[in-house]
Computed example of a mutant assay.
Amino acid sequence: MDKDELLLHASSFGAAAVAYDEHRPDYARAAVRWALAPAPGPRVLDLGAGTGKLTGTLVTLGAEVIAVEPDPAMLTELRRSLPDVRALSGSAETIPLPDASVDAVLAGNAMHWFDMAVAGPEIARVLAPDGVLAGLWNVMDDGVEWVAGLARVSGAAAIGPRDTPTSWRAETAGMHLPKTGGAARFGSPEQAEFPHGQRRTADSLVATLATHAGMLLMPEQERDATLGRIRAFLTNRPETARGDFTLPMLTGVLRARRL
């Protein structure tokens, strides 16, 4: 995407903030622990925090969390659901925190929206020495046959280039982190994946996919047709046709250490 298109996609979520908060999954705790493992202390910035899906897991794990989110509607939902968390308006490119004020910066399904040429040095600025930067992405496990079928039916707007494990590995292998060395001062990236899942129904999974950026920006008639295909697929699969089911997922983590 060019910068204008990237900005358009990144700014699309506010219109669906309530649905995003209701339907998007949290993150595997083992993945969050791995992301934080090298951090020198408990102070964590959740950057591009959205409605607080990752923030809530960090709080549960005992981190001292500050959340930063640029979209006012998403920030309102975060403050509503997590009133005790310090939640600030800001972005990856302009972080409203002092130098060396956090031990880790985490981003849940958000790092691919950052302009890392600007955000990399800014993230390095707020990180303490030896601090950690990590991006986390929830991906659907298309090693499961019916999930692979769902991906084929849904199309790239609903299940995009970071939404299945193979494409996630390729898309995030160093691509979304600051370049090593230079002003951003980060070391070589590491990847890891952790089992995860989300209890869904056919209706709630359709609603979840409708919160993806490509779907939010799609013309209404095309979006309705796409969601109709997805609903028809789910209501005709034995794994998903009868009430609740678990959507097989992985939480993928990409991390690097500040040099």
Rank of each mutant, 00 (worst) to 15 (best):
A16S: 11
P98G: 15
T94M: 09
S154G: 08
A37I: 00
Q198K: 13
P121S: 14
D224E: 13
P96H: 08
V253Y: 01
L54S: 12
W168T: 13
R79W: 01
R199I: 08
A151Y: 03
W168F: 12
L88Q: 12
L47S: 13
L227W: 05
T55W: 02
L82G: 13
A128I: 09
A256S: 15
S204C: 07
T60I: 13
D244Q: 15
A148R: 13
D224M: 02
D46H: 01
A10W: 03
G131Y: 02
D203I: 08
W113P: 11
R43I: 00
G160I: 03
V32H: 11
R257F: 00
T164A: 08
R242V: 06
L177S: 10
G108H: 05
T208I: 03
A256F: 06
A157C: 07
R200C: 15
A31I: 01
T235G: 00
I95V: 10
L6Q: 15
A31P: 07
L82C: 13
R24S: 00
G131C: 04
A213P: 01
L7T: 08
H112F: 14
P83Y: 10
L47T: 01
M111E: 14
M140V: 05
F114T: 05
P129H: 07
N109E: 15
T251P: 02
A210N: 12
L205N: 07
A170P: 03
A134L: 06
S167Q: 12
V206H: 03
A16V: 07
R80K: 14
A158Q: 08
W168Q: 10
G131F: 04
F233Q: 00
S12Y: 08
L216N: 00
M111F: 12
M1F: 11
S11Y: 05
E93Q: 11
E193I: 06
A202P: 04
R231P: 02
R152T: 11
R79Y: 02
A37W: 01
P219F: 09
E69S: 04
K3D: 14
A17F: 05
G187C: 05
A104V: 09
G252W: 00
R199T: 12
A202R: 03
G56N: 11
P70N: 10
A30W: 00
D99M: 01
V44G: 14
A207L: 10
A92H: 03
E190I: 05
N109L: 06
A156V: 09
V18I: 10
R86H: 11
M1A: 14
V144N: 02
G214W: 07
P219R: 07
G214N: 14
P40M: 08
L45A: 13
